[in-house]
Design a protein around this nucleic acid. Structure first.
Lengths: 204, 204, 204, 204
DNA sequence: TATGAATGAGGCTTCATTCAT
DNA sequence: GATGAATGAAGCCTCATTCAT
C-alpha cells in the first residue's frame, strides 16, 4: 500500500483516538491498532507521538479554515458573509466531531507546542472576523468610536460564542448548522436588547 | 497541623499543578512536593488522583459560582444584573488563573467523570443567564417570539463568549474586569449591528 | 532496608552485569533482578542507565586507585615503589574481575562521557608512574637526556603493559600478583636486552 | 556494480560506524545509509549484523597482520626486526583509526564470538614477538634462565604496551610511527633502569 | 499524624530482520 | 541486482499506589 494512503489512515485513527482520550491518555498502541498497522510503522512515518499529534492538529486546522473560506462569498454584505462563515463552521464541526475535539478540547491541554499551533489557527479566524466587523463599520459609514482594541475583544467574543455553540449544537441539542448560525446572528448582530423588542436578524 | 488546613494546602498545590500540566501529565509526586507533604499523606486524605482532581474541580467550581452570585444584586434590571455577573466572573478568573485553567481547559480533556462535573457547574451558570434573558423579555412586555429552545442557544453563546473573553483578557491583552464586561455587554446586549450605527450599551 | 545498603547492592549487580555484557547489551531488567529489587527502585536511586554506569565507573576507579595507593610505601626507592604499585594493581584486578572489565573493556566503548571518566582515572595512574620515573632519574643523578615528552610515552607504555598483563594473568595463565609484578619489572626496568644477558630485576 | 566492490563499500561503512559507535550502538540503518545502499542489500550480501561485524574484524585483523609482516625484514637482528614491526604497527593503526578502534576497543566488548576472533589475531602477533624474544636469546648465546612461561608474559606485556602507545600516539599526542617505535624500544629493550643511566637503544 | 521504602503495570521508542516486487 | 513496505521483540523509563513503621 502506498505511503500517502497509509499516512492518511494513521492520521484518521490518531484524530479519532486523540479526540476521544486527549493527548496524554491516548496510547500509540490504540492508534496503531485502529489504523490497522503495527506500531513501528507509525513511528517510521510520523516519528513520535508529539509529531503525530501536531500533524493531526495541522490537518484539522487547515481543513476547518478551508471549509469556512469555501463557504463564504466575498461579494455580499459583511453580515451576510458572517452568516455564511458561521454556517460553514457549524456544518464542518458537525461533520468531523473528533477533529473538532482535537482542536477545541485536546490541543489546549497538551502543552505549549500544541497550544501555539491551535492558537495560530484561531488567530486566522479571529482576523477574518475582525476584518468583517471593520467592513461592516465601513458599510455603515465608518463608526469612528469603534477603536481597534475593542474590535479585537468583540471578535474574540464572537469566536468564543461560536465555539461554545458548536459544542452545544452537536451535543445535547440537535440543531442544524443553519439554525445555529441564525441563533449566532441574532445574538451577535442584533444583540439581546433588540431581540427583546422583537427585532431579529434575517438572512433574507 | 489540623486536617482542614493540610487539605487546603494540598488542594492549592493540586490546582496549581493540574492547571499547569493537565490531569494526565500532572504527577502525584509533584503535587505532594509542592504541598510540602509526603505522598502517602495525600492518599490518606484524598484517596486517589481521580478523587483529588474531582475535589479540585468541585472547589474551584463552587468558588466561581459563589463569586458570581456575590457580585449580582437582585433588585436591579436584568441587563444590569448581567453586567454585574460578568464583572464578577472576569474578576474571579483573573484572580485565580490556575483554578480557571482547571475548570476551562483541563477538566474537559480528562474524561467523562470530570467533564460531567464541570458541565454541571456550567449548567448552573447557563440557567442563571437563561433566567436573566427571560426576565428581560418580561421587562420588555414579554416578547412572545422568543421560544425556549432559542433562549437556550443564546445563553450558551453568551457563556461561551464570556469564557473566550476571559482567556483573552487575562492572557495576551491585559484588560480589566470592567472593561471586559462592558465589551461583553456591547457585544451581547446591543449587538454588532447597533454598534455599527453608534449605539452602545452603558452601565449608567 | 536502608538506602545506602540497597545502593551498594545495586552497584554490585550493575558492575557484574555491565562487566559481562557491556553498556549497551546490559539490560536494566537483568541488573534489577540480580540486585534482588524491582526496576523502579533502581531508577529511584540511580536515575538512569547512564548515571548508573557512571556510578559504577567512579566507584571502581576510586577503589582501584585507592588500592594502589595503599600498597605503595613512599620511603623506598622508585623501582621498589613501582614494584609495590604493580603488585597492588594485579592483586586488585584479580580480586574484582568485573570491576576491572568495566574500567578496561566496557567504559571505553560506551561513548564520550564514560571514556572521559575512565581516562581521568588512567591519567592519575600515569601521573603517578611519570612521577616515579622522574624520581628514578633523580636518584640516578638526573639523566638530562630524558625529555618530558619521552617520559610521557614511557609511562603510557608501562601502564598499557600492566593492563595487558592483568588480562593475561587473570585469564588464560594463572599467575600470582607478585609473579606478574616481577615479570613487569624485568620487562620495564631491566629491559629485554639485559634479560638476554642474564641481568634481572629483583625485589631484594 | 560488481558484488566484490559493493561488499567493500559496505565493509568500509560498517568499520566506520562500528568503530565510532560500538557493536550494539551501531545500527544497520546507519551502515546501509553510509554505504549508499538499501538495507536488504546489506542482508543479502552479509546475512546479519553479527556476521557483518565478524567480517569487519576479520578484514581489519588480516590487514593489520599483513602490514606488520610486510614491514619486517627477516635477515636482520631480532631487535631490529622488532623495531620494524613496531614501526609498521604504529603506521598502520594511524592510517586506519576506525579499523583499529574496531579491533582494540569494540570487538572486546561485543561478547564471546567477537572476542575470540580478535584474540586469535592477537595470539598471532604475540607468537611473532615470542619468537623474536627467543631468537634474541639465541643470538645472546641462549640465556637458559628465560623459561617459556616468563617469555609468554613478556610478549603479552610488550604487545600491551604497543597497543597503549598506539592509542596515545594517534590521539592526544601526535607522534610519528618511528618516534613511537623508538620509545617502545627504549622502554622494552633497554629498560627503564638503563635509560636512567643514559643507555638507549638505537636503530643504527 | 506522618513517611521512607518499594513495586506492578504500562507507555514511548528502536532495531534487526523479512517479504513482495 | 535492488528496494519500499512492514513488523515482532525488547529496552528505557514513569507513575499511581501501598506497606510497615
Amino acid at each position: 500500500m502506498p505511503r500517502a494512503e497509509r499516512e492518511r489512515q494513521m492520521l484518521d485513527a490518531a484524530v479519532r483516538v486523540f479526540g476521544k482520550r486527549g493527548y496524554r491518555a491516548a496510547s500509540m498502541d490504540e492508534i496503531a491498532e485502529l489504523a490497522g498497522v503495527s506500531k513501528p510503522l507509525v513511528y517510521l512515518y510520523l516519528n513520535s507521538k508529539e509529531e503525530l499529534f501536531s500533524a493531526c492538529i495541522r490537518r484539522e486546522a487547515q481543513a476547518l479554515v478551508a471549509a469556512i473560506r469555501a463557504g463564504v462569498r466575498t461579494d455580499v454584505t459583511a453580515d451576510r458573509q458572517l452568516w455564511e462563515g458561521l454556517t460553514a463552521f457549524f456544518a464542518h464541526t458537525a461533520e468531523r466531531p473528533d477533529g473538532w475535539a482535537v482542536l477545541h478540547s485536546q490541543a489546549r491541554s497538551g502543552g505549549d507546542p500544541f497550544v501555539a499551533e491551535v492558537v495560530a489557527m484561531r488567530e486566522e479566524i479571529v482576523a477574518f472576523v475582525t476584518h468583517l466587523i471593520a467592513e461592516a463599520a465601513r458599510e455603515a459609514h465608518d463608526n469612528p468610536e469603534l477603536v481597534e482594541r475593542e474590535v479585537a475583544g468583540l471578535a474574540q467574543a464572537l469566536v468564543g460564542a461560536a465555539e461554545a455553540l458548536a459544542g452545544w449544537a452537536n451535543g445535547d441539542a440537535s440543531v442544524s448548522a443553519k439554525e445555529a448560525a441564525t441563533t449566532m446572528m441574532n445574538f451577535a448582530w442584533s444583540g439581546l436588547g433588540n431581540l427583546m423588542v422583537g427585532e431579529r436578524w434575517s438572512d433574507r
